[in-house]
Design a protein around this nucleic acid. Structure first.
Lengths: 303, 303
DNA sequence: GTCCGTTACGCCTGGCGTAAATATG
DNA sequence: CATATTTACGCCAGGCGTAACGGAC
């Protein structure tokens, strides 16, 4: 079977027009007819039904089945091409979400520089969910990713680095800040919340807690920006949820509160790559260094 | 590009022997050489290096990259072939784990019979993790599956049916059975446990609880058999964890205890299928009926 | 006639086999 | 010499284009 035929067919399913497909590939129109016939013979099943009465080309169920597979096939061919093309490049396509970058990356930068790895990094700074897409299409080969739930997709090779807890963050002006013991999430029912959007994990986290305790939170402000988020909380406009480490010693007038009976969902940090990707020596070095990165493990999380 | 070439190459990577590959496909040996050359030209990269000095054929990094992709491609071709071949069949390849079958299936059997669907079911009775494999390779097209954590693999189409809580199950002879309020898992630290193996979810569940509360459970017996499991607990040899519904009114001398501060992990039941699979009308009907299956939702779980 | 897809036929390349060549032990 | 792969060359089929055909407006 020829992958060209599959390509013709894929576009045919999307365009429903033999002539257009032929033009797209700069071939004659009968070529497309013949390619479809070849596939129909190969799979011993009608794939396309041309309904001249209603002037439309219909794809049979078998056709759709083949279409779905052929999309995956094309994706893999493209990926192979991309990966092989980049084989000689020194660059390491590396994905690093900003939060993780600022929190945990500084400690390894020196080490990376020593090994002459740092200058080879071609960093994509995106959120974790975005990075998984980039991994899929080969724009990123290795990523450090934070998720609340473990990544259990056999398509990825996942190496767990550690977990950090989430905490409730309030203004020093807020009476809650006087509490010395862990706060029960249910007691926050009446509070107003500032929500961190964009960073998928943080908003998801809030949602999970509210769902688990059946609370309907009053969200007074949504922002994707961490400094703005902190400012609003500092001004006691509302309270929020954040990875504990993100509030440092320089964040005055902000108080972190531990959560009593925390959900086992924490800020889980992992090194992720495509299982079908083969690391170059430099990339292997990078992964080794990342694995030795020191992320204090606090609560169990999922791993 | 020709998928035959990819097949030759795949086997070559596995066998490292041109002659063997040729024999396997009943072609002449130069055919394999030529196929590899074609691929190397197509991807503009050396894929195989024949080291005559050390008498071995080495696969280059590019070769491995292509190999990984070509496995996926082959899988998809096979799947397409399998699915299309089964297109005319009335049979519905359905996966149903025994536990779910006995607990929740009876209520829909009549409905299925009415629609003449029941006799079309070709049921694979395996555990949930096994069924995901069967789904992958096309031996099963639709499965009802129980998982503790949500299935978040974009390859599957998942429809959530409901969640059921796990509970601690003890003998009526056990002092714990007198408790009227939910039991705190930490209080079970000193207990002996009977563990249900095989059914992945149940053993995983116990492990998760123990890990979360940092308990090292004393497991006195492992069994994959539910009746034996129950008998041992009834005899107060130990206590166990089980989906609540599995203990029915006929299970005398067994007591279910709710768990205080339960983990959000419950027995989540979903209908799962391959995203790339197109349902036949009968299969759509089955899925519709399953979706209306009544699984009392108790605790939030993950969904 | 126009629009689209199919059929017919001829051309050329792509994939295969045979046989010979090459390299290593 | 034997073994394993590559090169050379010839054969046939597979994939393409051109041109003619067919059905619906």
């Amino acid at each position: 079977m020829n992958t060209r035929d599959l390509s013709y067919f894929r576009i045919l399913v999307e365009k429903r027009n033999y002539t257009e497909v032929a033009e797209m590939f700069s071939v004659s129109q009968p070529t497309i007819t013949q390619a479809v016939k070849r596939l129909e013979k190969e799979f011993d099943s009608k794939l396309v039904h041309v309904d001249r009465v209603h002037q439309k080309t219909e794809i049979t169920r078998s056709g759709y089945l083949l279409y779905e597979k052929s999309k995956v096939i094309q994706k893999n061919i493209d990926l192979a091409r991309k990966e092989i093309k980049a084989s000689d490049s020194e660059k390491i396509k590396f994905g690093l979400p900003p939060i993780i970058g600022t929190l945990y990356f500084p400690q390894v930068v020196q080490k990376l520089a020593q090994e002459s790895l740092f200058q080879k990094l071609q960093i994509s700074e995106s959120g974790s969910s975005e990075l998984l897409n980039e991994l899929d299409n080969g724009n990123v080969d290795i990523a450090v990713i934070a998720t609340i739930k473990p990544i259990q997709n056999p398509k990825y090779e996942v190496e767990y680095l550690g977990s950090r807890p989430f905490s409730v963050i309030v203004s020093a002006k807020n009476p809650l800040s006087k509490s010395t013991k862990p706060v029960d999430f249910r007691d926050l029912m009446a509070e107003r919340f500032i929500r961190l959007t964009g960073k998928y994990i943080h908003s998801q986290m809030l949602e999970d807690y509210c769902k688990y305790y059946e609370i309907e939170p009053e969200v007074v402000y949504d922002t994707p920006d961490i400094s703005w988020f902190k400012s609003l909380i500092r001004a006691n406009v509302g309270i929020g949820i954040l990875v504990r480490d993100e509030v440092g010693e320089y964040d005055r007038d902000l108080v972190c509160l531990d959560i009593a009976n925390p959900l086992p969902e924490s800020f889980n940090i992992s090194v992720v790559r495509r299982k079908s990707y083969i690391l170059k020596p430099d990339e292997q070095k990078l992964v080794d260094i990342l694995q030795r990165m020191n992320i204090k493990n606090t609560n169990g999380g999922y791993y």
